[in-house]
Design a protein around this nucleic acid. Structure first.
Lengths: 137, 137
DNA sequence: GCTAAACTCTACTAATTTTATAGAATTAAT
DNA sequence: ATTAATTCTATAAAATTAGTAGAGTTTAGC
């Protein structure tokens, strides 16, 4: 399941992607439009900025805007930024790999290969969904 | 990601499925074999029993054994029993549906249809993995 | 019947993560 | 200067997860 943070991030990106070129959106504007607690959204937008999905203008008249094309921002990108691994266990993860310490040797693990299969299919599905494709539907 | 509980449940089922017909496995035996804290495993086995995946024999010489065919126990079954919904948000879930309270109307939600697509693909993948198929690999 | 060894059940605790909130600091337009 | 926005750090409240404790129940075997 997605955390609220990831859901809010996606909703914020969807809002930004729907604005006309050059529009700079204030946090309060996004928060009210997408029903997100404003102070929580501030943190989320900062993380999206650090992840190079959005950028900001400071000071009066400041705000946030997309800097990555909405066609190239996928569900898996945002999931990884806020919720981490796509895989069901770290031992089956590409980007967040960690061995299980309850397994003696990974080769003997009956679970891992199955979980890798799941991750491959889920990841393919998540990479197929972009901010742009969500808006089109 | 799977909780430890779900991972332990799967490992316990894998252990039981590998025993010869008629064998009754003690909790301590499964715990040691699969590296699971014994008291935690007790709870997990009880939940698996309530879910009709295993049954138990009480008293001395008691223990647990599979009652559902290993060919029909899927990853999605066990995920749902311990970790709940397969979908990324409750509004996209089949078995754990709940509306989001930050959406005005569900029809206007740009996220939901995409998440339903993901759920369909992930679920298909998870239904394809059974306890039996994990043992074969 | 008694004892040993297993499952059963309820409650509790400790740690972690999630979901925020608070408030001071910084930046920039007017 | 003033106003209104982002930025940053710290904190708090709530929920979830992971695990423990201990009493109760059941059954095999002597």
């Amino acid at each position: 399941m997605l955390s609220h943070k990831t859901k809010y991030a996606l909703k914020a990106l969807l809002y930004l992607a729907q604005q006309e070129e050059g529009h700079i959106a204030k946090t309060i504007e996004i928060a009210e439009e997408a029903n997100i607690p404003k102070k929580f959204l501030e943190q989320i937008l900062l993380e999206l900025k650090r992840g190079h999905f959005v950028s900001s203008k400071q000071g009066k008249l400041g705000g946030y805007y997309l800097i990555k094309s909405k066609n190239t921002i996928t569900l898996s990108d945002i999931h990884r930024l806020f919720d981490g691994a796509i895989a069901l266990l770290p031992c089956a993860s590409l980007n967040f790999y960690e061995p299980c310490h309850d397994c003696q040797t990974e080769d003997e693990c009956l679970l891992r290969l199955g979980l890798i299969t799941i991750r491959e299919k889920t990841l393919a599905a998540m990479e197929g969904i972009t901010i742009a494709s969500l808006i089109k539907k």
